[in-house]
Write a protein that binds this DNA or RNA. Structure first.
Lengths: 226, 226
DNA sequence: CGGTCCTTTGATGGTATTCAATACACGTGG
DNA sequence: CCACGTGTATTGAATACCATCAAAGGACCG
């Protein structure tokens, strides 16, 4: 982390709307603000490594953070991708143990860090914080379960189709921009970049058009039937 | 659930040692005991279904509970397997929403149920309960991440080898019994039963011998090198 | 305008799923 | 105690799917 600083007005605003703090009472918010440190990360910077003693809780203010696990021989598998407002679930280590995965900024990112010991301390006195943590974790667990089932049940084109549908809630033709580069999306979906590319080109026959990060969905219903 | 009853002495004992209650103060334990209901499940009985409004928190006292997700066309993917002492993570729905997966007893099982509204109520007043929930959830999230990465990084024989090594912590030849049937294990590892069978027979060449539920590990080091 | 990184496309091999048929284990009842 | 039947496990063959390697094509930024 290059520069650490107290949150300014803009960062406080963003933090207030983040998943973790938005549900807290004013006093807990104040307590958390008190111990927040803001950091600016260049791409590829690591926030923490798998196996390190966990001392900080992390939350994304802007940008994206990729969390992955490593093979003995160096291969990586992404397990989650966090964006603005997200609490980094893998950094919630409440028992004072070690991080279970590695976190890396996927693009220039702004993140908030909280000393874990102090967070435990506050949460031990303030149920709203403990509940907010538990709540965030249930959401993350649900997402992890969904990924796991998705991996095991669906082929690459199906997973991509489902992702696209999740991005455009409207039930008619839409265009939108991918929020990050395709190699990141590939990792998130558990695919090699090549497989994502091939999935896109196969979906072209089902009303999907991709140019750069711009995606056009011609027929959501057709996608749903893949 | 066939019969619901207040916990007797034996069930209270088991509950006290379960992951959720073991870390609580006496008053929180009492409050939770107060609202606990014990149920005896026959195999294949469902505890809850994906999409149903969530009203109960579940914990396994004995037996095993399989949690899975369903495809539109009926195929199932197991996302977690819970045993004695485990809090069923997919039943921790703190926001009053819906269950995100289906839970089914895999064998005759004894489980404890807690009214979710009341749990939320207690946790809102008692930080130790909220923290115990958060703690249990971090563990589950870590396990889910591990499964996800395992699926994406390792082949079937490797996953099986890792599972076996995790069952026999000692670093020398050992024998032990699988705690459940192989089809369950296959689901847990994200494999079709046939693939598990083939993995076992390939591991035979690396010092693993399987007869029924009895497993003999001849050379843990060899397994680690798979 | 040039270089670097990302993405696409092609060819190949390994790996798991699926379907089908057989073998085995276990619990039940004769 | 043995015979039987149901559900579970194994084995085989064919197929589908994805990772990997290699190379060429684009996008983006200095």
């Amino acid at each position: 982390m290059n520069r650490l600083m107290k949150p300014g007005a803009r960062e406080r605003e963003t933090l207030l709307n983040s998943g973790l703090l938005s549900a807290l009472g004013v006093e807990s918010v104040a307590a958390m603000m008190e111990i927040a440190a803001i950091g600016n990360l260049p791409p590829r910077q690591l926030l923490f490594r798998e196996g390190e003693p966990a001392d900080m809780l992390h939350s994304v203010l802007s940008g994206y953070v990729r969390v992955y696990k490593l093979d003995p021989d160096g291969r990586e598998a992404d397990v989650e991708l966090y964006g603005p407002g997200d609490l980094i679930g893998a950094s919630v280590v409440l028992d004072g143990g070690r991080y279970g995965a590695t976190a890396q900024a996927a693009e220039p990112s702004l993140i908030a860090r909280f000393d874990l010991k102090r967070v435990r301390d506050i949460a031990g006195r303030r149920p709203d914080l403990a509940m907010a943590l538990a709540n965030a974790l249930t959401g993350q667990l649900a997402r992890a379960f969904a990924s796991l089932a998705d991996d095991r049940l669906h082929t690459a084109p199906q997973r991509v189709a489902r992702y696209l549908l999740a991005q455009c809630p409207v039930d008619k033709a839409t265009s939108f921009r991918l929020p990050y580069q395709k190699s990141l999306l590939a990792g998130k979906l558990g695919l090699a970049p090549e497989a994502l590319s091939r999935a896109f080109s196969m979906l072209r026959g089902h009303g999907v058009n991709v140019r750069g990060r711009l995606v056009h969905i011609g027929d959501p219903d057709a996608l749903r039937r893949i």
